[in-house]
Amino acid sequence: MITFDDVVKVYPGGSTAVDHLSLELPTGKTTVFVGPSGCGKTTSLRMINRMINPTSGRILIDGQDVAGQDDALLRRKIGYVIQHAGLFPHRTVLDNVATVPMLLGKSRKEARTAALGLLERVGLSAEFASRYPAQLSGGQQQRVGVARALAADPPVMLMDEPFSAVDPVVREGLHREFLRLQKDLGKTIAMVTHDIDEAIKLGDVVVILRQGGKLAQIGTPQELLDHPADEFVAEFVGRDRGLRSLSFDTAAGLPVRPLTADLLLDEAGRPVSWGDGEPTGGTFTVEDSLRLVTDLAITSPVGIAVRVDANGKADGLVPHHDLVDHLAERRAAK
C-alpha cells in the first residue's frame, strides 16, 4: 500500500502543485491519477520515488517513509514507465530491459536471460532483442518500456502517461495487454493520465484532482460515474457517464423473454437473422456488459437484443423496453 499523508508540494516561486493530499493506493491494484493540466498529478507520482520531494507531509510505501531511504536504492525497487518510453538509444532492446537487474548487481548474462523472458511477456518476439530503440515503432518502444520497468520484478510501478504518445488503435492494444499483464502480476500501480476514459478503463481506483493539486474525488470508476461528488467531477467524467457506467455491470441480472419464431436459427440453434431478413446485429452472453446489451438493442433493426449461451446457441431475447425497465430498477437500487 502506498500512503499519501497530508502531502503538500509548493514549487519555488510559490505555485502549489499538490495541496494537502491524503489518500491510499491499495496493494496489487491500479490507481490512476487524472485531472486537467496543472492539477499536480505528475508531481504526485514523482514524489513516490523521490524524483520530487514534498514540501511537507509524508509518503509511505507499506508503512515505510520514502524520505528516509536512499533515492537510488528506493528507485531500483520501483518500476517506472514514461511517455515516449525514454529508452536508452545507445542500447539494444535486450540491454535496455536488463538495465535495472544489472544495477542491482546481476551478471550481464543473467540479466539478459531474464530480459528475453520479459520481452515475450509484453508481446515482443526474440527477434527484437538485438534491435535499437530507433528501429521500433512507438507502440513497440512502449512495450519495451514496460518490460524494462518490470525487469527487476518490483512490487510497485509508476506509469507517467504511458500510452499517450501512441495512436488510438495501438493504444487500444496496449490497454488490453496492460490489463492482461496486471491480472497476472498484481503490481501496486500508480498511473497518471489526462484521459478520463483511460483512467476508467484501466483503474481499479481513480483519483480525480483539480487545479491547484486538490483532491476532487477518489473511488472506483463506477462510483465516480454513478455518484460524482460535485459539478467538477461530473463534468470531468463526461456527459455520457450514465452510459459508460453500464460497462461495469454484466447482463447476468437482466431478465430475458423466450425465443420467438421470428428469429431464424441454424441446426445448432445459433441465430441467423430475423424472419424478414433483417440481421440480428450481434449477440451477447451473460458475461457481457449492460452497455453492450444497450448498444445491441439500440442498433438492432427490430429493437431486440439476442442473448446466446457459451456455445453461441440463442437462449433469450431482450426487447429495448425491457432493458429500459431494468435500467430504471438498477437506478433505484443504487
Binding site: 520515488n49 524524483m51 533515492d71 537510488a72 536504492l73 528506493l74 528507485r75 531500483r76 520501483i78 517506472y80 514514461i82 511517455q83 515516449h84 518510453a85 525514454g86 529508452l87 536508452f88 538509444p89 545507445h90 538495465t99 535495472v100 544495477l103 524494462r148 509508476l158
Partner: peptide, 25 residues
C-alpha cells in the same frame, strides 16, 4: 531529457548515469 529522467528513475546515481548513459549518448 526523458532519457536522463528515466535513467534517474531507474536508480542510476549521478556518476554512473554520466558514464553509462549520458556520455555514450
Amino acid at each position: 531529457a526523458l532519457v536522463v529522467q528515466s535513467a534517474t528513475a531507474m536508480g542510476y546515481r549521478r556518476l554512473r548515469r554520466l558514464i553509462d548513459v549520458e556520455l555514450p549518448v
